[in-house]
Write a protein that binds this DNA or RNA. Structure first.
Lengths: 349, 349
DNA sequence: ATGAAAGCGCTAACAC
DNA sequence: GTGTTAGCGCTTTCAT
């Protein structure tokens, strides 16, 4: 590849100084029209592509924001071995994080911001989130995707929005839904409309959002005078953990309902129940959380809590931009509305 | 936000030179263990986040690749006015480009590459693709998303993979399917299995891929001794253009089949036919191209050509990486296999 | 309206 | 094994 032409090449060809070249691009109105034309012509003729690295270094800003996400878990751990059967992986796309990412992308496009995507699985030792943070003016991260300590370190330098996270200090913001109350509402539906007496919970406590869901479930059952079975550990994206959790539930005897912390897990549960000759809602009620596309397409369609996923992503960008403009000194924690969506998996017709 | 600590701060605190700090991160094995520990401790304590701009400038490489995509057209042109009714926009996600992007993302993650996302709609005058190109070591672009001239300019400096584009010179690569033959196969199916006599074509000639599709259709009809109706201009993502194209088709009298250049357009056609009391395949056969998720979910499911979208994205990254490693001096044009997928919209049961 | 020059933070020879 | 130092390409005062 040819050496990339620089401002020096353009300046020389146009017969001006590099400062003039720079001004031509950054503040065209400050340059005489004919000078500007000469510079632009020179730039075109040498194929000038400004270096974002140099510009970023000089300006102290990159003009990009970052999105730090989970490693999908769709990548095979052993190359050549699919981590997930293609059919299932395909059926699940787009997941929660994909829909949120879409919102982030759309908002970035609308604002002319470049978006840097990063995720775990970097080969080196430094936390990958630090690497991404070094490339951008502000960072959005899914809670649980990066170590809280790393994120806090980053937040000391650039604004951070942790999706579904806790605000813990300066420069840290968050966008989320009221997970506890949403899960409580869903659980109340099962109790009051479907009269369940026993319910199992499948899920994880790895993030504040997940914890809130479990607590919303537990609290509601207790309020209804029912005794929740203990939580069975299961993680979205790790189907085996979900299957094992389900097996433990079944070993204790079929409950009236199986409440899952995410749609992704609920869909696995539906599949596994079917494989055992059981069917929702006839044999057991099943619910999810998130409102991903696959949830509505499932048979039966999942009863779930729909999160405003695109909106979550857009809002995160808005908060970041405000923070970059200096308005965001105060940590923001934005709670967006979610909605119960009744499918047939809970026994409703 | 506090001033970001630099190598100088870390070096001072650790009592070493900045070179040692640099080596500690880039080649840890070249540094004595205790020195390394001291540096890492110092870095941690000041919250050091290396500047990718400075590193990129010094190294001449950014460690990121770029993906330049269309502006979705889902953004309202007049703020506040949805460009597309939410229901339809949602139903269509993920589109062809989303699935390809997913492949790019997955491959980047697997390789520890950062991914820079860019698209049109930048507020300034310089082509947005130039801006993205300045930020990365290699660029993937959807054909038609950027002006060919800009892309060629970029390709003189960094390797470029134009998805579905033509290879026009050094540093330009492409990944695509055999659009002409695939469309021909689809058309032959309509002719030989369903015995169509008249067929209308809805689509665009804006990219080489689209042109090849039209030609494959036209050629096949002529070979079968049928006279194709002229192509009706319609663009995916611009629903109004598709609706108008359909109106022109209907004004000429209902053909046996309506062949669309993309699933996205075919889905609009199905909707609009329904709105006129017409139904595929009873009143007219309808086909698409791409194999997006919404195509299989449509009623009736679309007969279409399925592109290996995720694979296209992954392959593009592979080509770029090879080119960056210096193996890619020769322009590559990679043709991936596609497959006819029979739905019910063509009249098959 | 334009130019000179001092950085921006890091890397990589090269010297020690 | 570690330090010195010269850039990398651009922006941005400050002069002119």
């Amino acid at each position: 590849m040819a050496r990339r032409p620089t401002v020096y090449d353009v300046a020389e060809l146009a017969g001006v100084s590099i400062a003039t070249v720079s001004f031509t691009f950054s503040r065209p109105e400050r340059v005489k029209a004919e000078t500007r034309d000469a510079v632009l012509a020179a730039a075109d003729s040498v194929g000038y592509v400004p270096s974002a690295s140099a510009r970023g270094l000089a300006r102290g800003r990159t003009g990009a924001i970052g999105l730090y996400a989970f490693d999908y878990l769709l990548e095979p751990s052993v190359p050549g071995t699919p981590a997930l059967e293609p059919a299932r992986a395909t059926r699940l796309f787009p997941l929660y994080s994909d829909e949120v990412q879409r919102g982030v992308q759309l908002e970035c496009r609308a604002r002319g911001l470049a978006l840097m995507l990063g995720s775990g699985r970097q080969p080196d030792q430094r936390p990958a989130v630090i690497d991404v943070a070094g490339r951008v003016d502000g960072l959005i991260a899914f809670a649980g995707a990066a170590a809280p300590a790393s994120l806090q370190q980053v937040a000391r330098r650039i604004p951070v929005v942790e999706l579904g996270g806790l605000v813990r200090g300066q420069g840290m913001h968050t966008v989320l839904v009221d997970n506890g109350e949403s899960m409580a509402e869903l659980t109340r539906h099962l109790v009051s409309v479907h009269g369940i007496r026993t319910a199992a919970y499948l899920g994880d406590l790895g993030t504040p959002e997940f914890t809130a869901r479990w607590e919303g479930f537990e609290r509601t059952l207790l309020e209804a005078g029912l005794v929740p079975r203990g939580r069975m550990a299961s993680a979205p994206g790790d189907d085996r953990s979900t299957v094992e959790a389900l097996e433990r539930v079944l070993a204790e005897g079929l409950p009236d309902a199986i409440v899952c912390s995410t749609d992704q897990e609920a869909l696995v549960v539906l599949d596994e129940l079917a494989a055992r000759g059981l069917r929702a809602p006839d044999d057991v009620l099943v619910t999810g959380f998130d409102g991903i596309v696959a949830a509505s397409l499932a048979d039966p369609p999942l009863t779930t809590v729909v999160q405003p996923m695109e909106h979550v992503g857009r809002r995160a960008v808005e908060i970041l931009v405000a923070a970059l403009d200096g308005e965001g000194t105060v940590p923001e924690s934005d709670v967006l509305p979610s909605a119960l969506r009744i499918g047939r998996s809970c026994g409703c017709s």
